[in-house]
Design a protein around this nucleic acid. Structure first.
Lengths: 216, 216
DNA sequence: CTTAATTTTTAGACAAGCCAAAATAAATAT
DNA sequence: ATATTTATTTTGGCTTGTCTAAAAATTAAG
């Protein structure tokens, strides 16, 4: 059995690993987990002892096969619960992250699978992130960043890469949601801010924001 | 904020307290929590420090107003989740206890209230136990024990006082479930075992079992 | 009413996670 | 290539919750 702390570390390592070869550093983890570097070192050791990560002193960790399986299982549970909260309990997309963060630790394979069935085997969560299957298979979201579009190009918003309450509340305020057709009207060369047309409204959004929006 | 351990202790104290005046002893708790008496003493102290129980050395604890509120909130969450698991995810009544034991620790008032709404404000959980309202109000189940019935008397099974997997599997095997009309055919004076008619079948059940069945 | 048995508390230890400060290794700049 | 900065690990300590064994208080028995 694994503790919640271990599960959280695995999920964080997974999200920081851009490719499976890349080693995740102690400081990057400490930053992500809002904790102390020395705590991270200890946990790295512990996870290595359980064969959930490969750990090289002063180099960092990568997930083992086993560790990756666990991490993906956490992601799966998180996204299924988020979907449940939005689809069934009428939460809005900015409210669900913290609650799902707790629910993802519930230990029951059966529960997860039944939940998935109950939800009708959803492919994506409320933020457009793909939901891993019970076998750990994970679709790639093949959208492109809003920042990659040129003037007059358009697309449909299919994924937001930041699930924080602040970011999503910002999008709500601008009336931006998944499925919206967005057209680039103008790009300000100085700060790369983008003027977009959301069918009904026009908004100027910063590059910072635009980077987190994925379109198809 | 309160830890899961604290929440578990409060719930256990609540379930051991037959009336609010009764003090719950260290050993009774240790027995219930499957833990050591010395651990219980320490937790009693801690809970007393947070004003969740009144604690008198060598005498035991009773819940304070605040402690009772928390305990009932745990019961509420537990029973709502059990209802969810059975009604929505098609679990059977003997499978839900352990999972609900985990789910009851999810911290979110809103979640609990939305879940209750989603379930249609159920009055009873899958074992016939009443579900406290968001204000902490709790209906009394006014059934009588099967052991109180005389020969030829009958009633409808409305509540089982043991939610353990073993007990419920036993009932499944005998085809006994909530809502069943049960008639007492005979009572064996020697061991107080009861022969019942379940409309279609006849069974002999021990006094031990019968004590946990409540009829209306 | 005094002794024996039982219950409860205290004392000392341990594991899991965390932190701050000190020591060491690695990376960067001169 | 060496000195300085930065990253990482080590050390020692703290908290929560647990345990065992010993001491103290309460209850039960004679």
């Amino acid at each position: 059995m694994h503790s919640q702390a271990e599960e959280n570390y695995l999920k964080a390592i997974y999200s920081l690993q851009n490719n499976p070869r890349q080693e995740v550093s102690t400081t990057a983890m400490a930053d992500k987990m809002q904790t102390n570097a020395s705590s991270v070192t200890e946990m790295f050791r512990k996870l290595a002892g359980k064969d959930l990560v490969h750990y090289r002193k002063y180099r960092g960790v990568q997930l083992t096969r086993q560790g990756k399986t666990m991490a993906i299982s956490m992601v799966r549970k998180h996204r299924l619960w988020e979907t449940f909260l939005v689809e069934k309990l009428n939460f809005s997309w900015e409210e669900v992250h913290d609650i799902a963060e707790q629910l993802e630790h519930i230990q029951s394979e059966v529960l997860t699978d039944r939940l998935e069935h109950f939800l009708g085997y959803p492919k994506y969560d409320p933020h457009g992130d793909p939901i891993p299957s019970s076998k750990g298979e994970l679709l790639k979201v093949k959208g492109k960043r809003l920042t990659e579009l040129k003037i007059e190009e358009e697309g449909v918003l299919i994924n937001v890469k930041d699930s924080s309450e602040e970011f999503l509340k910002y999008l709500n305020k601008k009336n931006l949601g998944l499925g919206d057709r967005i057209k680039v009207i103008a790009i300000e060369p100085f700060d790369k801010s983008i003027k977009i047309d959301n069918n009904t409204q026009e908004h100027v959004i910063s590059e910072q924001i635009a980077k987190n929006l994925y379109l198809k």
